[in-house]
Structure formats: C-alpha cells, structure tokens
Computed example of a mutant assay.
Amino acid sequence: MAQFTILVRFRIADGQLATFLPLMIENAQASRREEPGCERFDVLQPEDEKDCILLYEIYRDRAAFDAHCVSPHFKRFDAATKSMVAEKQVTVLELLAEP
C-alpha cells in the first residue's frame, strides 16, 4: 500500500500561538514516538504568516493515519486546542516523484 501524506494548515486565533505551539510540538513528538505508522511529522511556520502553522505528515498508509486520529495523545491535543484554531484545512497529497 502507498504512503499517505497530508498537509495541514492552521490559522491560529489572535494571541493563542504561544499556547498552541508547545501543544502542537508535543503532539508531533508523541505521534513519532508512539505510532509505528507515522513516518514523518514536521511542524512548520511560513516566514511571512506568524499566525499560521503547517504540518507535513507522512504515514505508512491510510490505516496508520486513521489510527493517529483516534490516538489518546491526538484526542487530548484536539480538545485542548479547539478554541485556539480560527481555521483548519487538511490537504491529502499524492507523491508524484522522489529525488
């Protein structure tokens, strides 16, 4: 089965980034540490958008991503940050070529 890759874009509510970011980083680290199907989980910030956080995530397959979405650490993160997120967009990506 092919890898499952997503790009998640968060726009964080005014004044919430300092609280959101440590929770996001903790969630990313737990995903890599506790989920054998999580192959990559990068937390990024566009240089010119300080209220934006991007996630680049690669999972072994769709089932591994589905397992991530029901993991205890993800559920804690989601509940703790729901009010901090002004907007969230998830894009599923298809790998067309590797270097």
Rank of each mutant, 00 (worst) to 15 (best):
I6D: 04
L7M: 15
L7T: 11
L7A: 15
L7E: 06
V8Q: 02
V8I: 15
R9E: 02
F10A: 04
I12C: 00
I12P: 02
A13P: 09
D14F: 13
G15Q: 00
Q16K: 14
A18S: 09
T19M: 09
F20N: 03
F20C: 01
L21W: 05
L21D: 05
I25M: 09
E26T: 15
E26L: 14
N27Q: 07
A28Q: 00
Q29Y: 05
Q29P: 05
R32M: 10
R32S: 09
E34R: 09
G37H: 04
E39M: 13
E39Q: 13
E39R: 12
R40F: 07
R40G: 04
F41M: 13
D42Y: 01
V43H: 01
L44M: 02
Q45F: 00
Q45D: 03
P46E: 00
E47K: 14
E47I: 04
E49H: 06
E49C: 10
D51G: 11
D51M: 10
C52A: 11
C52D: 01
L54P: 09
L55Q: 01
L55I: 09
L55N: 02
Y59G: 04
R60L: 14
R60C: 07
R60N: 06
R60I: 04
D61I: 03
D61H: 07
A64Q: 00
A67V: 05
H68D: 07
C69T: 14
S71T: 05
S71P: 12
S71I: 02
F74G: 04
F74P: 07
F74V: 07
F77Q: 02
A80D: 13
A80F: 09
V85A: 03
E87C: 12
E87A: 15
Q89E: 13
Q89A: 15
T91I: 15
V92S: 12
E94M: 14
E94S: 15
E98M: 11
E98G: 10
P99N: 04
